[in-house]
Amino acid sequence: MRRCFSLPPSDADRRGVAAIEFAMVAPLLILMMLGMVVYGGWFWMAHSVQSLASEGARAAIAGLDPLERDALARSFVVAQAEDLGLQSQRASIEVESTAAVIRVNVAYDISDHPLMALSAIVPSPPRIIRRTAVVRLGGY
């Protein structure tokens, strides 16, 4: 007569279990790590672009007319981009100056950044980082 139950596995029978479990979990772990690297780098660059826009708007306050404000903001953004690890030729800068506000818009293209090469594997963040800063002029 045959038995319908089996004996519990011994330690010798479980030698490959850890390797199989790792093989099942490793792809998910690697994807999560790549996502953290890609988005962490993107957030770092987005924060740097926001800093450029904010400081460019503050620098523009010293200008007496819209043309001088534009020149001051642009020169500040170009000069400070390298200090933040960004390339100034990838940034496009728009300065709007009215009697009430100075608005500095900075758009930074990260399409060719090495970090974005990893974004083919994970969902990609936007390839153009757009940030704006506004400074009010008087009338508080």
Rank of each mutant, 00 (worst) to 15 (best):
R130W: 04
I121Y: 10
S124H: 02
P8G: 10
A60L: 13
A18D: 02
V122Y: 12
S88Y: 07
A23D: 09
L72G: 09
R58D: 08
D70E: 15
L137Q: 05
R103A: 12
Q87S: 07
A53L: 05
L72K: 11
S10V: 06
R74I: 07
P126V: 14
V38K: 09
I93N: 04
V134R: 03
L67P: 14
R131D: 01
S124C: 05
E21T: 08
A53E: 05
G139T: 09
M1N: 13
A26F: 03
A26Y: 04
A117T: 02
L34Y: 05
T98S: 14
L118C: 06
R14M: 01
V25R: 00
A18G: 09
L67N: 15
G85M: 05
V101L: 12
A62D: 01
T98H: 12
L84T: 03
V134M: 11
G40R: 02
F5V: 08
L29Y: 04
S111K: 06
C4G: 09
S10C: 10
V101I: 13
L72R: 15
V49D: 12
R3Y: 06
R103T: 10
L115G: 07
L67Y: 15
M116C: 03
S10G: 07
S111D: 08
Q87Y: 05
R15G: 00
P114D: 04
Q89V: 02
G138H: 00
Y108A: 02
A59M: 11
P9N: 11
S51F: 14
L67D: 15
S75W: 04
V122P: 15
V95P: 07
A46P: 01
W42C: 04
P125Y: 09
S10F: 06
A100G: 03
P27V: 08
I129A: 10
A107C: 01
I20H: 00
R130F: 06
V101A: 15
S119H: 02
A120Q: 05
G138L: 01
A53D: 03
P126R: 14
A59I: 02
L31R: 13
A53M: 03
S97P: 11
S48A: 15
M1S: 15
E96D: 07
S51R: 15
N105M: 03
S10L: 03
S75E: 13
A26W: 03
R127F: 05
Q80Y: 12
I129M: 11
T98V: 09
V38R: 08
A62G: 03
A19K: 00
D70N: 14
Q50C: 02
L86D: 04
L7Q: 13
I110M: 09
Q50K: 05
R130Y: 07
A117F: 01
I61Q: 06
F43T: 12
M36H: 14
G35C: 15
V77H: 05
V37T: 11
T98M: 10
A60Y: 14
R131C: 08
W42L: 00
H47R: 11
R58C: 07
R15M: 01
L72F: 14
V104L: 10
V95A: 15
L115A: 06
M32I: 14
A23I: 02
E96K: 12
R136E: 14
E68P: 10
